[in-house]
Every structure is written in structure tokens, then in C-alpha cells.
Design a protein around this nucleic acid. Sequence first.
DNA 1: CAGTAATCGAGACGGTACGTCCCGTCTTTAT
DNA 2: ATAAAGACGGGACGTACCGTCTCGATTACTG
Lengths: 217, 217, 217, 217
Amino acid sequence: MRPQQDRQPARGRPRSQESEKAILDATMELLSEIGFRAMTVEAIAARAGASKSTIYRRWPAKENLVIAAFAQTPLLVVRGRGDTVAQLVEVQAQFARFMQETTLGGVLAALVAERAHSPALGVAMDPLVHQRRQPMAEILTRAVERGELPADIDLEFAIDMISAPVLQRIMVMGLPTDRRYIRQTVETAFRGLGGRVAPAARTGTRRAQARHEERMR
Amino acid sequence: MRPQQDRQPARGRPRSQESEKAILDATMELLSEIGFRAMTVEAIAARAGASKSTIYRRWPAKENLVIAAFAQTPLLVVRGRGDTVAQLVEVQAQFARFMQETTLGGVLAALVAERAHSPALGVAMDPLVHQRRQPMAEILTRAVERGELPADIDLEFAIDMISAPVLQRIMVMGLPTDRRYIRQTVETAFRGLGGRVAPAARTGTRRAQARHEERMR
Amino acid sequence: MRPQQDRQPARGRPRSQESEKAILDATMELLSEIGFRAMTVEAIAARAGASKSTIYRRWPAKENLVIAAFAQTPLLVVRGRGDTVAQLVEVQAQFARFMQETTLGGVLAALVAERAHSPALGVAMDPLVHQRRQPMAEILTRAVERGELPADIDLEFAIDMISAPVLQRIMVMGLPTDRRYIRQTVETAFRGLGGRVAPAARTGTRRAQARHEERMR
Amino acid sequence: MRPQQDRQPARGRPRSQESEKAILDATMELLSEIGFRAMTVEAIAARAGASKSTIYRRWPAKENLVIAAFAQTPLLVVRGRGDTVAQLVEVQAQFARFMQETTLGGVLAALVAERAHSPALGVAMDPLVHQRRQPMAEILTRAVERGELPADIDLEFAIDMISAPVLQRIMVMGLPTDRRYIRQTVETAFRGLGGRVAPAARTGTRRAQARHEERMR
DNA sequence: CAGTAATCGAGACGGTACGTCCCGTCTTTAT
DNA sequence: ATAAAGACGGGACGTACCGTCTCGATTACTG
């Protein structure tokens, strides 16, 4: 994943960065328009104004090309504003918007499906997966420091709990997912993980739980 | 999903039920061995000892064949034993075992990916998705009746919260998933949803939360 | 080279004879129009209204396809009329006309060039080569029987001497070749081989033929 | 055919003569080893230790490169020794040896095939063709002067008759060709052309003809 | 002796055709 | 009417070369 070895001064004609960008852009466009399986390398080359050999010189297969296209999408940005739940909702909402606006939910599913029978693909995808989880890890770490979450919490597990419902709804169920749903999942997971939800963030579900707890006493 | 039944007395040679079974079995085997994309209809026909036309006469395309193969897998069984969390854990564990033993996690991902660009496939898959969620709905309904969960809970949302982490871990992350992880997710989600966890089911995370709550007071 | 084994009653859909003919015809047309190297299998398929797989199912490579196309050209016909030289001229002229009208001289050269590095191609071409020489062998045999040529003549060598100049001029030199040139080569070779050229036929087969027709009345 | 000479004193780095020789040598080697069509410019460059641009700077296409490689082969040498037939046999044998030792028969065929659809190539090849025929023209001219051949003989036609059988056997038929065969063809053609064969040169065929002529009387 | 200019190697570029593979359909004989 | 067999038109695959085009590094002559 390192950019290059910065070794020998690069002999021969250097690879065209314009071509590379055009190819990755065309890939993202076609991915959105017609999906992973229907997308052909020939169509990518045609749209990018490049040749097939230029594509295959860089990426050994369609999967790797798609991963590279994904990798150049903007990272999720963590804004330190708001309480922990609000920050988590923000990150999840960014992700949800990206997946739904570009119909890339299905692409991720396709990559995931391929990975089941191609270990190399798994290795190539790992950095992307962790990149997406990193912002949440930071938010949760700060929450632990502020005493909003148990000190001995398992971060990876916590991220699973918070992110899984949104990912499942978008990618597996293919259903539209709005901010209200995201807030609900984050709050429920946060509470289940032992988090202290700020009173101002209370929502319908929150109130329902409060009523329920009252009855329990 | 059933083929044409209750029709007129069937003219000509009747369709061979042996062939149909052999085709579906071969499909499941090949799905497990080489995955959805690498699997060809010709390979299925060869392994099943059938001809391609026999396959295409029954299912219009590869996706539908795979759905049919999935549809004949055993349903999840709900055993009324144990408390609510134990029952949910049992159902999830059954599902996890099935997905991991047969490497069908990737197949589900492939179907999901295809559905993104094929509405017809979505329609065909819906019954399967709901079938899998039905046992959990029953368990949760009983839990509400016993007062273990808020009366106004959104059942579909609750199922999302409980099932998503396991599905994500198996299908999206491709990681092995044991009963301990399943128990942890179910407990955390159950608690987040306002559920009353039976004392005997306490685990590490549960205790950590207890300690945390103590400190919070 | 045998037509078929006439074995098992041919299961499955039989190969289309129309396709086969269309492919061979398209091959001959393209061969004449643009030559062997410039001719692509895709162009043949397009013109024949067939698919590439239909072509590759029958012939493993372009060379074999071209040989097959050649093989369906009409055989040289020996007419027993006239004296030996006139018959030889007639056969050579038929061949020359065929090679020049269809510009297949270059194709034969291409096949010959390929054969140098492909023994299989040599084997495939052999029958064609001998087919072309057979009529001349018959004419020469009759000439020997009539005492017009030495009894112990080497037939293959004689054919070489008679046919080589015309073949060289058309194929190697690429020059137009008329009946006068053909007559000259045949007479010269025939004389060199010890043939007795009928005195009356010297200035032209034309007069010999006139005499022959007189006798016919 | 000479490159630009007598021009201005040449600015910039001069072309490398070592590269040029290495390229032509590599071309001849590969032609012999794998033939014209299988030979790639990249393979020539690799073997010659040159780059493709160095090749294309000198020759516009593969065909021209091959012609250049041919052009540097040694010319046929005429030795004035022996009678006319012996001299002709010597020249033909030199040519046959060269074609057979280096398997360049096939290369010549490939060039000939290309020329059929590329007039420019024909022009480029012409000097080579005439070079090969020139020694025979000289021998025949001397034979005419000595009265061994008719004074009104057509030189080009005579060369066709003498050289065609050997060329056909080597290049078209791809058969090994020994000195005996060459002598036979030259004698037969020479006799057919009205030549007076020296008594010492008599061979089997010659004697057969003698016997035949005897019977004719 | 510092430019200047053409050549060198390397290798990426847009193309084009290759021969293979599989799709989903069609056509045959046998049951 | 359905079965197995297998040919069909179609179209994408990934590879291999084509002949062209940058690159930085040489290697002469020129001023």
C-alpha cells in the first residue's frame, strides 16, 4: 500500500496519471450506472479514452480495479462537534449518503462475495475496511476517556454493534436509510454498550425505553 | 416459489424430479466450492448429469437457480427453551453455523449484489429474507408479552439490531464467528432495546457495564 | 481425411452445413480482397453471419480454415482432346486462371510460408498439392504409353519441370501470365524431357486442333 | 537503396552501427528459428539488446527489416570454370544451400505473400530478386556468345526455366534438394531451350533420352 | 568547453486481433 | 412433452504485438 519504493529513478516513459484518473472515474461511474457484473473492462476503457492494456497493466483483474476506485473516494471525516452519539451518527450518515447516492452498496456486496473465494482480494480490501472503521474508533476512544463508555470496552466489537445495522439495511436489504434510522441504531447500540446518552439527545425510542424502565421498577 | 402444481394432468413426458434434485444439489455444492461467479451452468449440468436445457426450462437464469437452491435449505427452528436471550442466541447460532459450514456467506453476498441491479431478483429473494427473520419475530413477540421488552417496540428494527452484527461479521468481514460473539451481540442489542437480561446470562461485557454503571453513580 | 467414422448416430444438434459453406465462401472472398495476413477471423465471422465459436469449433486456426477453403475449389479437369502438349497447356492454364482471377497466388505463398514452421500444416496441405499434380501425371502417363516420352521417365520430376515456371511466375514473381507464356514453358520442358513434339503443332495448338476437328467430322 | 549519404555533416549523436548489425543478425536468427509470422519486433529488440524505437527509426515495418536482413546475405558468385551447365548448376546449388541451411525458404515465401497486397514491398524486393538472377544472365549470355544457345533466346524466360524447379522444390514443396536434382533440372531445361550439352555432363535422364530418340528413328 | 541536437535504452500508450469461455437459445434423436 | 447432447450467435475475457510516444541518459559536433 505504500506509494512506491522510491527506488531506481524510473526508467522508460512514466505512467500517465491522467489515464489512471480517467479510468478510476469511469469505473466509479459505470459501477453506479450498471453495477459490478454488468460492467465490462472494455466499457471502462472506452469511457476513459484509454486502452484495455493500460488498465490491465495496472490492475490484474476487475476486482482490483474496483478496489482502487473505491480507495480514492473521500475518507469519512470526523467532526469533534456534538456529543458522542451525534458524532457517531454523523459518521454513519456520511457513509450511508455515499453508499446510497452512488448505489455502491451493491458494489461492496460484489467485492465481499468475490473475496470469499479469493484470499488476495481479502488482503487488498482490508485497508479499506479499516479505514472506514478508524473514525469510529477515534470517537469511541474519546468517549471512553470522558467516561461515557466502560474503560474495558472492546473497541472492535463496539464498532460492529454501531455500524452493522446501517450496513445491513443498505447493503444486504437494499432499503433506503435515513438519519432517523441511523440515530435510532446508534443510540440503541450505545445504550446497550453501557453508554451514557446525553439527555438532550433523547428521541422516541429513548423515551419508550425510559417508560419501559419505569414499569420495570 | 413452488413450481407449477395443480395443473392439468400434464401432457407428454413429465419432468424428472430426480433431475431437479440433482441440479439443486450440484448447485449448492459448486456454490460452496468455487463461489457464485466462478460457477457455470455448464458445470452444474455436468455434475447433475442433466442437460443445460433441463436447467433453463425450470429457471430463467443462474440467479433464480441459486435462489431455488437456497430455498430448499432447512428453516431455522425455534426452540421455546430458555430465556429470550438464549433463544435469540440459538437462532443466530443456527444461522451462523449454516453460513460458515457451507461457505454460503459469499453466495448471499453475490445474490445481494445482483439484486442491486435486478428488481426481479429482489422480489424472488424477499420470501427467503423474511423466512429467516420470522423466528426472531416470534421470540421477540413472546418477550414483549412477558414484559421483557417495551410494548411499543418496532419489531423489524429490533431484529435489525440483533441480527446485523453477526451477519456483518460472517458475510461482510468474512471472519469466523463463535457462540461467545453471538451471545455478546444479542445481549448488547437486547439491553440497548430496553430488554431485561436474565441474571444467569451475565458475561464479561455485562459485568464490565455493571462496574461502569456503579462508577457513574 | 476420411469423411467421418460413420460411427455413433451423431447426438445433439448437427453442425450447420449452411454455416460451414458461408464461412468457407467468406474466407475465399476475404482472401482475394485483402490477403491472408490482413484477414481476421472476426471479419470472416461477420461476413458469413456466423460466430467466432462456430469457426473455431471446426478449424483450430486460420491456416486450417484457409486450407479447407482451398480444398473446396474445383479440381483441375483433364480433357483428353488434343496432343500431349495441348493437354498440359490446358491444365496449366486452368490453374493459372484460377490463381490470377482470385489473387490466390499470395494465399498459397502464405500457406507455404507457415508450413515451414508448422509440420501439421504441411500434412494438411499435402493432399491439395497432390490433387493439383494428379491430372498432369495422367497426361504424362498416357504420353509415355503412346511413346511420346521416354518409358523410364521420372513422373514427379517431369511434373516439376512442366509446372514450376508458371507457379514461380504467378506466385513468386507476382507477374501476369498468359497462355503464350504457358505454352512456351510447357513446350520447352517437354522438349527437354525428351518429348516428341508433333511438327504440325509447333506454331500453335490451334492448327492441331483444327486437324483434330477435321478428323471428327 | 543506400541510405542518405553525402549529406550535411550530421548533427546530433550518430546512429550506432553495432546496433544495426545486431538487429539484422537477430532478425536472421529468429527468422530461421521461428519464422516470419511468429517473429515479433520485441523479440528482435530483446535479442539484439536494442530498443524498439531504434528498430522503427531505421525500418518502417517488419517486412522492410526482413528485406534489409536478406540484403546483407552474400551474393551468389559465378565461377567461370566448367561448361555452361556446370556453371548454372553451381549457381543454383549455392542458392539451394543457402536457402536450406538457414531455412530461409519460408521467409522468402512470407515476403512473397506480403507483397501480393503491398506494392511498396514489391518495389523493395525487386533489387533482391534481380540480384539473384543476374549471375545466371551472365552465364547464359556467354553461352549464347559461344553458340551453345540460340542467338534469339529470351534471357528472362530461360532463367525462369532453369531456376523455377529448384525454387519450387525448396520453397513451395519444402523438400530437400540435392546436387543431383539440380543437375537434372538444369540439363533438362538447357536441352529444352535448344542448348548443346557437353558430353561429360550426361546423366541418367540424358541417357534415357538418347535411348528414346534412338527408338524414335 | 559549454551548448545543442539526434540517438540510445526503456517502457507506457491507444489499438486491434487473438483464441477461450460462457451465456441463453435452438435443433436434433430417444424416451 | 421432456430428456440428453451439443451446435448456434453473441459478447467479454485477458494476452500479445503493433507502431507511436515520452522519459532521462548518452554522445557526438558546433559555436
